[in-house]
Amino acid sequence: MRKGLAGQRLVAMFIAGVLLLNFPLLSLFDRPVTLFGLPLLHVYLFTVWGGLIAAVGWIVERGAR
């Protein structure tokens, strides 16, 4: 687990999270556009955040079995 696939997946998720939640990718979504009536930036941040948590959860709980 530690050195195995799950560990590498977690590191990959970490790197993906750092990239997705920072400049420059973040700036792409900073526009006066709304999605379902909500600002794109807020939707983007919470979606990426939620997605990251789900992915990490999937990785670690899978390894638990």
């Binding site: 687990m1 560990g7 977690l10 590191v11």
Partner: peptide, 20 residues
């Protein structure tokens, strides 16, 4: 605005590496 969020995004990223 959205600037309250880094305080919570940080631990999320940190915990991704928590298992390591």
């Amino acid at each position: 605005g959205i600037w309250f969020l880094p305080t919570y995004l940080g631990p999320t990223l940190g915990m991704a590496l928590g298992w390591l």
